[in-house]
């Protein structure tokens, strides 16, 4: 299938990019720091190890989704490689989908690799590995899928810098939206009520995929929550990718 060929090429492209290895080094250093810090703390060893480890994995996936995602399509346009690619028997939507799947493959591979390293650190430090750990990693993958499709959507609209800025903006608002809603309701801030009620329709609620604190407190996330978050991620990705297809199909590739 053409999508597989494109996805594999995208996978190869990112795997041969130096930025990926810088990211791995950064994550491993962050995990290493967690070992040093946990030695300084008393009784919070597992919490610090898990906190640092999961944060490193989360940040890596966000950087990959936003920074690589924003340049994937625009780099093809800038270098004009898209011109030979799209004169082959493949549609513009297949091209976008191939890029999305390829980047997601890299993110999943990276997350699995980093999880394995964290898993090793946890075993060495006698921190118990529970089911919640794998659920938290799954949540990070769901969020990365949304961020990747979001970045592809922004990059079909604008330039790399703007696509990155918009995606980072949505990332922060998406994580803050639940807290904002909570404070508006608690503080009875009537003039913010309209915004807080409607923000959910404009910005994806990324906190729905955040199960990292459940690992630290050893809470098992309910399967219905996982299922609804998975559906939420799938619908968001489908919606954003469809929008990207639509915009990209009408675009002059000059």
């Amino acid at each position: 299938m053409i999508i597989n060929i494109l996805a594999l090429n995208t996978f190869k492209e990112i795997m041969r990019d130096k930025i990926l290895y810088s990211l791995i080094v950064f994550s491993v250093i962050l995990m290493g720091i967690s070992i040093a810090l946990s030695d300084l703390s008393f009784g919070e060893k597992s919490r610090i190890t898990l906190n640092f480890g999961l944060t490193a994995i989360h940040i890596s996936s966000v950087i990959l989704s936003i920074f690589i995602g924003s340049s994937l399509v625009l780099k093809e346009l800038k270098n004009r490689t898209i011109m030979t690619l799209l004169t082959r028997p493949l549609s513009r939507s297949t091209f976008i989908l191939g890029k999305f799947v390829g980047l997601l493959m890299v993110i999943i591979s990276l997350l699995l690799g980093l999880s394995l390293i964290l898993f090793g650190i946890m075993t060495v430090m006698s921190v118990p590995v529970t089911m919640s750990f794998f659920i938290a990693i799954y949540g990070i993958i769901l969020e990365a899928a949304v961020l990747t499709s979001l970045t592809l959507f922004f990059s079909s609209l604008s330039k790399v810098f703007l696509a990155i800025s918009f995606s980072i903006g949505v990332f922060f608002v998406g994580h803050w939206i639940e807290s904002f809603n909570y404070f508006v309701n608690k503080g009875h801030l009537a003039h913010f009520k309209f915004i807080s009620d409607n923000l959910f329709y404009v910005v994806p609620n990324l906190e729905r995929f955040n199960w990292r604190s459940d690992v630290i407190y050893n809470n098992l996330v309910d399967s219905n929550i996982i299922l609804s978050a998975s559906l939420y991620s799938a619908v968001l990705c489908a919606f954003l990718l469809t929008l990207s297809f639509f915009i990209f199909t009408k675009k002059d590739l000059a």
Binding site: D17, T81, T84, R88, S91
Partner: peptide, 19 residues
């Protein structure tokens, strides 16, 4: 897509995948 199968194209100042 069927027509594209019968076409070959080389753009001006080609730049291909360095990797």
């Amino acid at each position: 897509l069927a027509v594209k199968e019968k076409i070959g194209f080389l753009p001006e100042r080609p730049y291909f995948y360095n990797y």
